[in-house]
């Protein structure tokens, strides 16, 4: 049978339901016989509830974070205008935020990129 010490180390994950079947039944067996460890389980249930509540109450990651991630990760291009690209390779691309304000625009002339505008701070807030 598990000692009190072994049992108490496992109690958080027992309460969390994250022990394997063997460890879980070893804890359960110990608890039947040990009032002290059973009290620890009750206290841990209380602590877990408060802690989950407190962490959950923290404000979430703002929605705008996705815009920054997609811009950095995929260089998200939300609007693109092809102006006779088959003739002279002229292409105007604009990177927009979801609210529609331009962040960056550049012109591709014969494969060369010409920046027209860049308002977006790299990775920063816009």
């Amino acid at each position: 049978m598990n000692t009190c010490e072994e049992t108490q180390e496992l109690i958080p994950w027992y309460v969390e339901g994250r022990l394997g079947p063997e460890e879980s039944s070893a804890v359960a067996t110990h608890l039947i016989a040990c009032a002290e460890c059973l009290r620890e389980v009750a206290a841990t249930v209380h602590v877990r509830g408060s802690v989950r509540d407190a962490f959950s109450a923290q404000p979430p990651l703002p929605e705008e974070a996705w815009e920054r991630v997609s811009r950095q990760a995929m260089g998200r291009r939300l609007a693109q205008l092809d102006v006779g690209s088959f003739l002279v390779g002229l292409r105007l691309g604009a990177w927009l935020t979801r609210r529609g304000s331009p962040l960056r625009a550049d012109l591709h002339v014969l494969g060369r990129e010409v920046h027209l505008m860049n308002r977006g701070k790299k990775g920063g807030a816009s």
Binding site: E16, R48, S56
Partner: peptide, 12 residues
């Protein structure tokens, strides 16, 4: 460890 156990529900 508290966060990962009680918020994330992760095993040890």
């Amino acid at each position: 460890v508290v966060f990962l156990t009680f918020y994330e529900g992760r095993s040890y």
